[in-house]
Computed example of a mutant assay.
Amino acid sequence: MSAVLVGADVKLPSPLRSLKGTVEEPWQQVLADTAAQGLDGVLVRTLYELSPTLDAGLLREVADTAAGLGLYLELGVGKVNPYMAAELPEIRRLGDGSYVEGMARMIEAAAAIGCHELWTATGNFQAALPGLHKNDRYRRDAPWADQVAATQRLLEQLAPVLRAHGSHLNLETHEEITTPEVVRLVEAVGPDVLGIAFDSGNVYVHGETAEAAARRVAPYTRMCHLRDVAIVEGPETLDRYLVPCGEGTIDWAQVLGVLLAATPDLHLTVEPAGPRQPAMQIWYDDPRWRAAHPDLDPHELDAVLDCVGAYEHHVRSFDRPDAAALRAGGLFTREEFLRRSAGHLRSVVAAGDHTHPTKEYIR
């Protein structure tokens, strides 16, 4: 049996760009460090972090260097919700004043170096804002239905360039969008140009479990961000924390079985949390949250609520960190999160007699 492949998530320094238009931390070092850790690839979340000018020579050099180290290279191209486009001025600059053209140029640049599965998402999370309004789903200036409709129109504008290059934009199951909504977008615009990047940790904030969500998105899933969850009682409502795979409440044998049955060559991505992370709330008892989730399955929500007791059982039985420790943070570094997650996923895949690659991304 061949080994399961595992890639690396590397935080780029701030500021990201030098005067020459490349990342300040040499990308060569990023790739070398990834290989030295015994990992197998990287996903750069936004292409312009490598080159804000999309320098073709530089991008080709990056791809060739990755290949020479035996690493795969995958890319993301920013967000596709027009209501938060102002938060990404780099993309509009790439398009000489057009956000859509900036996205199109990134798709073309990625295709030129052989990257056709492209990460994207439909919103942001603003941790400093109060309550529900941390999440773009609950923006005060735009109903979520309007945001989804505008997102679909933007995706339809990008569909021709995606078709021309044989590429897919893969919509993450991000914290502002539910899995039924992601599936509807893919089906409306076309699975020949859109796919899904399944994030196992985000779905819980919508009253979804990773196991049920995986079944919904599996037919269209082309990328993954995998991490486990600990759901605990918080000061205001339920708090969701991210923990290494195998150290929360997700049934990984079930999740991976569903995903890999649908797409046997699917790459599995581990997205580690750092030593400090804000809790993400599940506002299940807020009437506004309920009204904002017309697709909610009450039985699935009950399963999410049951995760509180399931994690508490682990705390009592296996000495996992309790709510106070999770709030305090410092339980693991990003590297430890990756190592522990990769080890668990490898063991699950091996037990299922799978030989599919697992990877991480540069955020």
Rank of each mutant, 00 (worst) to 15 (best):
V258S: 03
E247W: 10
R140K: 13
I231S: 04
I231C: 02
G201S: 15
A36P: 08
E247N: 05
H165K: 09
A159K: 10
V42T: 11
S341Y: 02
G95I: 00
V304S: 00
E117H: 14
L238D: 01
S341P: 04
D40C: 14
P244T: 06
V229Y: 02
G38V: 09
A86V: 06
R92K: 12
L194I: 06
Y83N: 09
L58T: 10
D239T: 08
F337Q: 03
L71M: 06
V349I: 13
S341N: 07
A110L: 03
W252G: 02
E87G: 08
Q126Y: 15
I107D: 01
I362H: 12
D302H: 11
R363Y: 12
R137N: 06
P82R: 02
G248Q: 02
T122R: 02
G21F: 04
C115H: 03
E335W: 12
Y241F: 15
G57E: 13
G166F: 09
D319C: 11
A109K: 01
T178C: 06
P82M: 01
V44N: 05
R327W: 06
A188T: 12
Y204F: 15
E208V: 04
E87Q: 14
D136S: 14
F337M: 10
D9K: 12
L256S: 07
S14E: 14
G70F: 08
T333Q: 08
R346W: 05
I107Q: 01
G76T: 00
A85M: 03
M103C: 13
A210T: 05
A213Y: 01
K79F: 11
R290N: 09
S341G: 04
G131C: 07
A261V: 03
H174T: 03
V186A: 05
L94S: 00
F337K: 04
P26G: 10
G234R: 06
T355R: 15
V348H: 04
G195L: 02
Q147L: 09
Y361N: 11
R92W: 00
S200L: 02
G352Y: 10
G246F: 07
D265H: 15
A292L: 07
E49Q: 15
Y311H: 05
A328Y: 09
R215S: 11
L39N: 13
W119H: 12
A36N: 10
P298Y: 08
R140A: 15
A212Q: 14
V217N: 02
R227I: 06
V304G: 02
E74M: 14
